[in-house]
């Protein structure tokens, strides 16, 4: 009992362990698993990342103005949902060019609001993909 007593007394003179987040920003380690980032010029549109993703957070959907790339035969565009992603980096491991076309950063995802229409826009993309498959 006396160790707890003295420890409670000496804690009064030390700084508390609490970090005032988000008023004080926290520096994340550079190996922290964060959002996935995409380099469009090096992509070869093999679609291996889409097959490997467990929750299905990467979709390649045909659109009217596809990005200019000679490997893009079917006019597809890359879409990524940071709110479905579980940051497991299976897609990075499945990609044939892991540091040029697809890599993992250490940023955290930002909260979304109702005006961003996160769920509705993603469901539209999924329906579009099912029609063209």
């Amino acid at each position: 009992m006396f160790t707890s007593f003295t420890k409670a007394f000496t804690n009064l003179f030390k700084t508390p362990q609490t970090i005032d987040y988000p008023a004080t920003p926290i520096e994340k380690d550079k190996e922290h698993r964060g959002l996935i980032e995409y380099g469009e010029e090096a992509c070869i549109y093999c679609l291996k990342c889409e097959k490997a993703c467990p929750p299905g957070a990467i979709l390649f959907v045909p659109v009217e103005n596809p990005p200019e790339n000679e490997k893009n035969k079917k006019g597809l565009k890359y879409h990524y949902n940071p709110y479905l992603c579980i940051y497991c980096s299976e897609c990075v491991r499945a990609c044939p060019k892991p540091d040029e076309a697809l890599w993992q950063s250490n940023k955290k995802s930002q909260p979304a609001t109702k005006e961003d229409r996160v769920n509705e826009s993603w469901f539209e993309l999924e329906r579009l993909k099912k029609q063209t498959d």
């Binding site: 409670a8 007394f9 804690n11 009064l12 030390k14 508390p16 362990q17 609490t18 005032d20």
Partner: peptide, 11 residues
């Protein structure tokens, strides 16, 4: 506040 400082929290 005093009790929180004794538990090394901010309070």
């Amino acid at each position: 506040k005093l009790r929180a400082r004794m538990q090394s929290r901010q309070g």
